[in-house]
């Protein structure tokens, strides 16, 4: 069984009487340990897909299973618990809390997880070591560079040892060199066995992952998977042969 199983998932919004299908009958599996990217232009539905995968949102139709838990019918409280323990987020704008120092920011998911102060500190320091920022633990986010802030955010995403990490345009707010460093870090984490889903609009960035999924108009338009090599290719939708 795959770590994440999406079956016929649709997300429908109603905007002024008009029906908008942000996701239209999407099915997708993500295996544990995969490094996958979800590509698509803005408005394609890739953010909606990531929100549903990340338990920030629930689908209108279809089923989704993460690590054995069906979540399409889960309550807000259960979703919060899954986000806390099984999912890590890395955002484009880092989304660190400016009033807390680096260590406290990394500790935050464990605060909601209900760990003791000592255990929080130890695990937060270990997570900071993974991103080489243990000597910055008392700094405020504003005192760090963008790349450093994103590394703190990655440490925060990893600190509860999640099943899967979602990185939403993690390099979007960084210069290309720093972006490289972050991508390198993600690749390294992937090699260590982490499951990472990279959401981006940039095919060049998506190229770092072996498996790529392209979303267009709420549907999967292209699926590049090295494991499927040799099998019939999924024909790109809307491309005439």
């Amino acid at each position: 069984m795959a770590l994440v199983e999406l079956r016929n998932v649709s997300k429908i919004y109603h905007l002024g009487g008009e029906e908008i299908r942000a996701l239209d009958d999407v099915s997708l599996d993500i295996e544990a340990g995969e490094f996958i990217s979800i590509i698509g232009p803005s408005g394609s539905g890739k953010s909606t897909l990531m929100h549903i995968l990340g338990c920030l949102d629930t689908p209108t139709k279809g089923t989704i299973q993460i690590d054995g838990t069906m979540i399409q019918d889960a309550t807000a409280r259960q979703l919060a618990g899954i986000r806390n323990r099984k999912i890590g987020f890395v955002f484009q704008f880092f989304n660190l809390l400016p009033k807390l120092n680096v260590l406290q920011n990394v500790e935050l998911p464990m605060v909601y997880g209900g760990l003791s102060a000592r255990a929080r500190r130890d695990r937060a320091m270990r997570a900071l070591q993974m991103v080489d920022l243990e000597n910055r633990s008392k700094h405020r986010p504003m005192q760090l560079s963008g790349g450093q802030q994103q590394r703190v955010a990655i440490a925060r995403a990893l600190v509860n040892d999640p099943k899967i990490v979602f990185a939403d345009e993690p390099t979007g707010n960084l210069d290309s060199h720093t972006g490289e460093v972050i991508l390198e870090l993600l690749r390294k984490l992937s090699q260590e066995g982490r499951t990472i889903a990279l959401v981006t609009h940039d095919p060049e960035i998506a190229a770092v992952t072996p498996r790529r999924i392209e979303i267009r108009d709420g549907k999967i338009s292209r699926h590049i998977d090295p494991k499927l090599a040799g099998q019939p290719r999924v024909e790109p939708v809307g491309v005439s042969v």
Binding site: L56, A76, R77, A80, G81, R83, L97, P109
Partner: peptide, 16 residues
Amino acid sequence: IREIGIRKAIGATYAG
């Protein structure tokens, strides 16, 4: 609002 969003994304419940 943004802070609350971040806290919710990393696992804060309604009650939290």
